[in-house]
Nucleic acid binder design. Structure first.
Length: 856
RNA sequence: GCCCGGGUGGCGAAAUGGCAGACGCAUGGGACUUAAAAUCCCUUGGUUGUAACACCGUGCGGGUUCGACUCCCGCCCUGGGCACCA
């Protein structure tokens, strides 16, 4: 008869109350005697649908590490907050008239309740909310610093306008010509917008990636997004009485002798000017066609090259040859100079275009035969202009009478030589280009930070003074955009008009608001000093806590949030407000959790509520058709979304936490399987019974017990350090498998060690067990055990004996034997002698404690 | 097309040059029970066999090594990112 059951519901309630009442996880601002450790979760957008099983994955991982660090004597900062500006609350406001602040507050309450229910050790006194005026006062203040530094400007630029969302979007928010949120079509439209000069930081954003402890994948994505390429700008003279010139950017100035035509982007400013009357009509038509194409169309039609001849010619600056100037939409107006020199023999895009329009193709690099063959390219075809080659080789036909001769050189040499020659003639120079564009920073929305500035009637821009901040959002009845591209704030007539308190001059407030990314660009700093109303952060506190030691979140923010936040941080660093040049030293991306899904034999997805799982496998409820189980992204339509509240009610928060970690490696994409939660739940129940029901004895552990106990200490400690939580849990299971049993006496040392080791994973249960073991204080700060190397020693171990790599026998021996002793023992085994069959032994390979391999 | 991951039992996974499949789920069998649930014990990569054993086995094909899931070369499949960036 059990004396107690594992009643997770009351245990969890009890300890959550205890932690809250005792402020167990309150973090002190400074602790001279303790090293600091700052662990950050990407704060969530509090959506109306509540927490998803994906959220607690990262939160549990960081919580385990934090609890472990506290028990190892660190002063740990582990905060949580809300990235609460955003479109859904605003759209709901448009539909129902409910103020977004009301919706947001409600959603935050739900998120907070759900997160607290999982027992995470956040210091809730540091909670931040980006929509709180006390918070966005400082977002506005930082914008002022950006503006004062010349990093914020207004530009009339072609922007990504999304009619369905009624707002413009940043390049980063447009995926395949559709909006990242909601997949709505996006069109190019020139508009007056706020921009941030992130391009000024391109080089540093790129270079400083090298020292960060981030996954190579994410670093590579940022590098690609920044897209640095080195080359040269080259000036081409235009052939016409009035003169004129076009500058191009190329990464291959060495191929200049092979440039047989030029291409301008259809939007290039010179196009209208240089087009001959005979071609004017065709050029106009092509420009119109290109402008009406959405980005989506451009992507889909990428295979076929189109373009029109302008009727104009330019001069190849190295050969003096007259070459035609075309326009084509494969040249982008927004990159480089919006114009290129075309070298069809050595560029695949130019080659395709030249073939399409019968333009000359001149080979000026003899391909390296071996490299060409490796790529499946026939070098002779290249020489004859029947194929293009972009790889290594020797320059040919590349000299002029003006002192440039690069024949015979390699690609690298000739790039340098040509660039120097261009520079000496004043018609070119080395140049570095980036794909990164300036950040489009305004949105036509209500629910965002207002810009802290006024457009004065005299045309100047006045920044609000610090004591006019925060500039709060006006109360409104109607949140609909005007439809003309005018933001909702344009309707707030009272709010819009501004009178300068000092000069009495008048102006209009900005009607755009900041994008959602603004608040998340600096929230990690505010956690350090959340209540400061004199500064966005106290410099002393900043110095103590920064940088963030570990940042955990989803990979979907690889370029957006992480690039923007690094940019702001570097600006704040340059202004002397922060002490580190990078905010996030180590970054880990948790893998997405997939839902269990079903499809029929034709591969059609079947919603989970139409599926019945029989002993023969899953079948369709109505037809009985056999289905195949597989993992797919959780979605409402597939009905495979798992709600953390349900899991918690059935198995408890500790089981939920443990399962999230036991599924597999943190960074891997993993399918959720509710049946498997049962497994970790059973483990927790056995753990409870082992400590709460088995007799605890004051005896020392015997040798075997000590060995197991110390092996577990070692493995769990190492695994937490390397974030391998799944294998740490396995090891704890091995402990229970070894120590649990009906009324087997359990040495106190083993019991206490186990409870401490399990406590970061299952904190509620372990607080309870710690109390049952007779302690009256929280386990949260109890010292983490260290393993005793001596206890790990083993007297005899089974060693595999191989002959030519195949296992032929197993023998018990001490793991401390020497090479000679091991081979001696191995060769003494009769079965081995038989296997050798009198052949001479060439050598033996011995791995202590593992195997002996005999080579004959 | 280019750049990153990944491919191991029925399933989630472990092992990063040294006995593949730890740990868990699910299966099958047993104990307990009037019975069921729960719990506990055993079994479980494949093939032949009653069994010991033997042979095969980490996507496919080669290679390096005494020894390869692990390192190298080529290919296939799959997830993600980028995509006319000159």
């Amino acid at each position: 008869m059990s004396t107690a059951e594992y009643d997770f519901a009351s245990i969890e309630k009890k300890w959550q109350k205890y932690w809250e009442e005792n402020k167990t996880f309150k973090t002190v601002d400074f602790a001279a005697d303790k090293p600091k450790y700052y662990v950050l979760d990407m704060f969530p957008y509090p959506s109306g649908s509540g927490l998803h099983v994906g959220h607690p994955e990262g939160y549990t991982a960081t919580d385990i590490l934090c609890r472990y660090k506290r028990q190892n004597g660190f002063n740990v900062l582990h905060p949580m907050g809300w990235d609460a500006f955003g479109l859904p609350a605003e759209q709901y406001a448009v539909e129902t008239g409910t103020h977004p602040a009301v919706t947001t507050a409600k959603n935050i309450d739900t998120f907070r309740r759900q997160i607290k229910a999982l027992g995470f050790s956040y210091d809730w006194d540091r909670e931040v909310d980006t929509t709180d005026p006390k918070y966005y006062k400082w977002t506005q203040w930082i914008f002022k610093q950006l503006y004062k530094k010349g990093l914020a400007y207004i530009a009339e630029v072609p922007v990504n306008w999304c009619p369905a969302l009624g707002t413009v979007l940043a390049n980063e928010e447009v995926v395949n010509g559709l909006s990242e949120r909601g997949n709505h079509p996006v069109e190019r439209r020139p508009m007056r917008q706020w921009m941030l000069r992130i391009t000024e930081y391109a080089e540093r954003l790129l270079k400083d990636l090298d020292d960060l402890d981030w996954s190579e994948g994410i670093k590579e994505m940022q590098r690609n997004w920044i897209g640095k390429s080195e080359g040269a700008e080259v000036v081409f003279k235009i052939v016409r009485p009035e003169g004129g010139e076009v500058t191009v950017f190329t990464t291959r100035p060495d191929t200049l002798f092979g440039a047989t035509y030029m291409v301008l982007a259809p939007e290039h400013v010179l196009v209208d000017e240089i087009t001959t009357p005979a071609q004017a009509e065709k050029v106009k038509a092509y420009q119109k066609m290109a402008a009406s194409k959405s980005d989506m169309d451009r992507t889909e039609l990428a295979t076929e090259k189109t373009g029109v001849f302008t009727g104009c010619f330019a001069v190849n600056p190295v050969s003096g040859e007259k070459i035609p100037v075309w326009i084509a939409d494969y040249v982008l107006a927004s990159y480089g100079t919006g114009a290129i020199m075309a070298v069809p023999a050595h560029d695949t895009r130019d080659f395709e275009f030249a073939q399409e329009f019968n333009l000359p193709i001149r080979c000026i690099i003899e391909p390296d035969r071996e490299a060409a063959a490796g790529e499946g390219v026939n070098a002779d075809d290249v020489l004859e202009g029947k194929a293009s080659w972009t790889g290594p080789g020797r320059m040919i036909h590349s000299s002029n009478s003006d002192g440039l001769n690069i024949n015979g050189m390699t690609v690298e040499e000739s790039i340098r030589t040509t660039t120097e020659w261009l520079l000496s003639r004043g018609i070119g120079r080395a140049k570095t280009q980036y794909k990164l564009r300036d950040w489009l920073f305004s949105r036509q929305r209500y629910w965002g930070e207002p810009f802290p500035l006024v457009h004065m009637d005299d045309g100047s821009i006045k920044l609000l003074s610090d004591d006019e901040l925060p500039l709060t959002l006006p109360e409104m009845e109607d949140f609909k955009p005007a439809g003309t591209g005018e933001p909702p704030l344009a309707k707030a007539k009272q709010w819009l008009r501004y009178t300068d308190p000092e000069t009495g001059k008048q102006g209009w407030r900005e009607t755009n608001t900041m994008p959602q990314w603004a608040g998340s660009c600096w929230y990690y700093l505010r956690y350090i000093d959340p209540l400061n109303d004199k500064a966005f952060i106290d410099p002393e506190k900043e110095k103590y806590w920064m940088p963030v030691d570990l940042y955990v979140g989803g990979a979907e923010h690889a370029v957006l949030h992480l690039l923007y936040a690094r940019f702001w941080h570097k600006v704040l660093f340059d202004l002397g407000f922060v002490s580190t040049k990078e905010p996030f030293q180590k970054l880990v991306n948790q893998g997405m959790i997939l839902g269990l899904s079903y499809k029929d034999s034709r591969g059609v997805l079947v919603p989970t509520d139409e599926v019945e799982v029989t002993t023969e496998g899953p079948v369709r409820k109505d037809t009985g058709e056999k289905l195949v189980e597989f993992a797919a992204k959780m979605s409402k339509s597939l009905k495979n979304v798992v709600n953390p509240d349900d899991v918690k009610h059935q198995y408890g928060a500790d089981s939920m936490r443990l399962y999230e970690m036991f599924m597999g490696p943190l960074e891997a994409v993993k399918p959720w399987n509710t049946k498997s939660v049962e497994g970790v739940f059973r483990f927790l129940r056995r753990s409870f019974k082992m400590v709460a029901e088995q007799p605890i004895v004051e005896d020392k552990m015997d040798q075997d017990q000590a060995r197991l106990c110390h092996t577990v200490i070692k493995k769990v400690t190492e695994d937490i350090e390397s974030l391998d939580f799944n294998t740490a849990i396995s090891q704890l299971m091995i402990f229970v498998n070894g120590f649990a049993g009906d009324n087997k006496p359990l040495p106190r040392e083993a019991a206490e060690t186990f409870v401490i080791l399990l406590s970061p994973f299952a904190p509620h249960l372990c607080e309870e067990l710690w109390e049952k073991l007779g302690h009256d204080d929280t386990i949260a700060y109890v010292k983490w055990p260290t393993h005793d190397e001596a206890a790990l020693k083993i007297n005899e171990v089974e060693v595999a004996i191989q002959v030519l790599g195949k296992i032929r026998a197993r023998v018990m021996m001490s793991p401390e034997l020497t090479h000679e002793e091991m081979s001696e023992k191995a060769l003494a085994v009769p079965a081995i002698q038989e296997e050798i069959g009198g052949r001479p032994v060439r050598k033996t390979i011995c791995v202590p404690g593992r195997l002996v391999n005999i080579v004959v």
